[in-house]
Amino acid sequence: MVRAMEKYIRTGVKATPFCPGCGHGILMNSILRALDELNMDMKKMLFVSGIGCAAWIPSPHFNGDTLHTLHGRALAFATGAKLYNPDLCVMVISGDGDLSSIGGNHLIHAARRNLDLKVVCANNMIYGMTGGQVASTTPKGFKSSTTGEGNPHRPFDLCKLVAAAGATYVARYSVTQPLALIQALKKAIRHVGFSFIEVLSPCPTQFGRRNLMDRPEEMIQDLLRRCISEEEAEGLAEKELSEKIITGEFEP
């Protein structure tokens, strides 16, 4: 079978390192499809990532320039590269913990500068690679290896955060909405300015098994049930709304 996206994969890469049921493979595919539909030149693409499972989406898999940096610092490294060579199309792909917790300061400042960076934040609501610790995106009440009785704190709304900081393209989709996600990725790539796409990606290994969703399909079903559009959210009572995730475009 000829794999349609193979030409975007680095020579020598045989398989992805992701766990069964991880959403990052769907996200990886969606990013490559967006690049393919826009005929992007991989020789002018720079993919920057931090530390964590999502940081491995581009590195080493993508067949462009890749810069796998330190935990939390992807946006700072990307800022230097983009400023010095504006001809590069710079896409930052990293996780929620990397971009919004340890890298939170860089995130709001990069959004404030509105530099032309395309940021894809794979949000699995947990620290996956390190063993399932609570994240700044774990919903209140959910269990992790460091919150056995449920997370006592509220999570960040990442889209509101970056929009408030000045990002000029902001969207949120789940890997269960691949077609809308690909369209959003294409818009982000074409957009000149700081674009941010939060992508909900299930982590059955670390998040699901602690929260009564052991099997990958249970997490997929859960995302399908919870992700709604802004229009769908309008008529809902506050209690119903509290467990929903609103997806769509928020900026511009």
């Binding site: 700072a76 800022t79 230097g80 590269a81 010095y84 300061n105």
Partner: peptide, 26 residues
Amino acid sequence: GIFIQMEDEIASISAIIGASWAGAKA
């Protein structure tokens, strides 16, 4: 050349490393 005042020192050195790989003496 390019000058930028970053949000902290971690960002500053990280930015110069990114710029160096983009070809700059930084």
